[in-house]
Design a protein around this nucleic acid. Structure first.
Lengths: 226, 226
DNA sequence: CTGTTTATCAATAAATTATGGAGAAAATGT
DNA sequence: ACATTTTCTCCATAATTTATTGATAAACAG
């Protein structure tokens, strides 16, 4: 098995360690996170192959984490729940997870499910690349290239550009962009987006000096155009 | 956003007020109820578009309210809970809520979730494009095109044209147009609209020289005709 | 013809966005 | 755990865009 990187989000250290042990032994590389906020950040930054996500977490709960993540990534997510009845309810909430495992689970089962989900996720992969003229945004490797040259973007810049590129021509308001990029459990200053846009524009302009790829719609927001 | 009516069931006045403020600002109409019994009656009577329901209530608690309501209505319900652990418990109870938000929550999050639930609940979204002959107004990309050529409109011009185009042939008075476009100001000078109409006409005329798309009804106002 | 309504113009006011930079926060390396 | 680096957020202010207004001319209705 190729060396694939998994992220386990679990606050009970004992469970986390057991999972980590078995998964490592199965040939995966495993990172542990014990809270929701960090999980979202980590997923955005490290783009794991799969996430094992406990529902009960301190701070941002698993359901919210899942929702957040789905705003910027299709990474496979397996939810860990305390009781079987929960699964039905979860399915109704459309949170976008790929599988559910109930506690108490056998490590063997977890490994099997992880492999199953990975197998399922691999072939018909969703468009992990957004292409617009000379610009290519590759979700998988978390990288943007212009005419083949890589742009060195920060996480926020990447997230922002990703949202904009998913809907070319569509205008996004600042608060929409804030929501999509950082999640809505956040009270931020609209104008922070301006700063990121400024830096993003500067980096893009290094490679595409003549074109204004990100346009300002006065009184409304920003949009991306090829 | 269409003017939609929400019901907030919350006994802590401070929280209720904050919620009301933010939701109102987001364009919703909000009613407040501070106890469960009245909530059920109110929901039956006023058929709100969505209910925000605190779990801890004097008298009939939120869970019971939710169950009651589900006997006669599918109105979307978002539960407000004090602790994340409660959500796990609630998920098992199958009370029929559409989403859960834990305190303390940011108003931004609440607004976002309300919109998300409404979006999900809404069957077919409204057409986001208005078409009239060669003229297309696209709300999503905030753009008006005439025969494929883009018009560069200011926010007021766009808003004005949007209102006019929603009801072709209907005459709008100046104060009506002022209200629809800016919503908040009373002290506005009717004749301001004239200026905007002038500029709008000029921009449209560049692409449609022969037709008078915006007509003046002397002593009444303006109307849009194909 | 006369009073009223609308059109146009351009100066000024108001609102929005751009930008640079400082300090905070977060991530990273040791 | 600590120091270093990177990134994020926010603020002040400059630059830009849009809105408003009043004056005046033109069009309209009776």
């Amino acid at each position: 098995m190729a060396d694939e990187h998994l992220l386990v989000v679990e606050d009970e250290k004992k469970i986390a360690d057991v999972l980590s042990d078995y998964l490592t032994q199965a040939g995966f590389t495993v990172s542990l996170i014990d809270n929701g906020e960090q999980a979202v950040v980590k997923i955005k930054a490290s783009a794991p192959a799969l996430v094992l996500l406990d529902i009960m977490l301190p701070g941002l709960d698993g359901i919210s984490v899942c929702r957040e993540v789905r705003k910027f990534s299709d990474v496979p997510i397996i939810m860990l729940t305390a009781r079987i009845e929960e699964v039905d309810r979860l399915l109704g909430l459309e949170i976008g997870a790929d599988d559910y495992i109930c506690k108490p689970f056998s490590p063997r089962e977890v490994v099997a499910r992880v492999k199953a989900v990975l197998r399922r996720a691999r072939p018909g992969e969703k468009p992990q690349r957004l292409v617009a003229g000379p610009i290519i945004l590759d979700e998988g490797i978390h990288q943007v290239t212009v005419d083949g040259a890589t742009l060195d973007l920060t996480p926020s810049e990447f997230g922002l550009f990703h949202v904009l590129m998913t809907f070319p021509n569509r205008v996004f308001s600042r608060s929409e962009l804030l929501d999509k990029v950082q999640g809505y459990r956040y009270d931020g200053y609209d104008r922070t987006i301006d700063s990121h846009i400024k830096n993003l524009r500067k980096k893009i302009a290094q490679r595409l000096p003549d074109r204004e790829v990100i346009q300002t719609i006065y009184g409304v927001g920003y949009r991306f155009t090829i």
